[in-house]
């Protein structure tokens, strides 16, 4: 039996900018209210064109769960580690809060959590996944911008989406090999 390779595929063309995912994430993961404390976000990309010819897109994002994770490399205590499924996690008890991972992350996906007294970030809701549930952001989305699944399973939604549509990844020049795929 091959390992699972978890990934999220996003179709941000559908995104309504409704922020359901960001609020769901906060409750699910005990992320406190605060301007700097968030695991996921919905960005309004810059407006294109001039009135009345306009175009705008919204981009949902979070930790990219890089296969070549710079944050993991620079963590002095192995607090950041990658699971066999390719999920990058933080062992809160091992974090010394040196914040090297925060400077190393090209996606600004990490922040200091006073709740965990550690640096934290998106976990792909592994505590839910292990119970057979979807990550909270995936589940709550009105238009299912995100799909979560196993890249090693050819029949999974993520595999099928990636095989049928072109996609891009964020900051490919950093060679981080993210597990977040943005289909076009």
């Amino acid at each position: 039996m091959k390992n699972k390779r978890y990934a999220i595929v996003l179709d941000t063309k559908k995104c309504l900018n409704c922020k359901a995912c960001t609020v769901a994430c906060k409750f699910e993961n005990f992320v406190p209210v605060g301007d700097d404390t968030y695991r996921i976000w919905v960005t309004e990309l810059p407006l294109q064109g001039k009135f009345p010819h306009l175009h705008q897109e919204y981009q949902t994002s979070q930790c990219q769960h890089c296969e070549n994770a710079p944050c993991e490399k620079v963590c002095p205590t192995k607090a950041t580690f990658t699971t066999p499924e390719g999920v990058v996690l933080v062992d809160y008890k091992k974090c010394i809060l040196c914040k090297a991972c925060m400077t190393a992350c090209p996606y600004d996906a990490r922040f200091v959590s006073e709740h965990h007294e550690s640096v934290e970030k998106c976990t792909f809701c592994m505590h839910r996944v292990s119970e057979g549930r979807e990550p909270a952001c995936v589940e709550t989305c009105p238009v299912r911008v995100r799909e979560f699944g196993d890249l090693n399973d050819p029949n999974s939604k993520v595999s099928r989406l990636l095989s049928s549509r072109p996609y891009l990844q964020l900051k490919p020049e950093k060679n981080t090999r993210p597990r977040l795929f943005y289909v076009l």
Binding site: C18, K19, A20, T22, V23, F27, T140, C141, P142
Partner: peptide, 10 residues
């Protein structure tokens, strides 16, 4: 349809 918005979550 299995969705819940920001308000519903809050």
């Amino acid at each position: 349809r299995g969705m819940l918005c920001a308000k519903g979550n809050a």
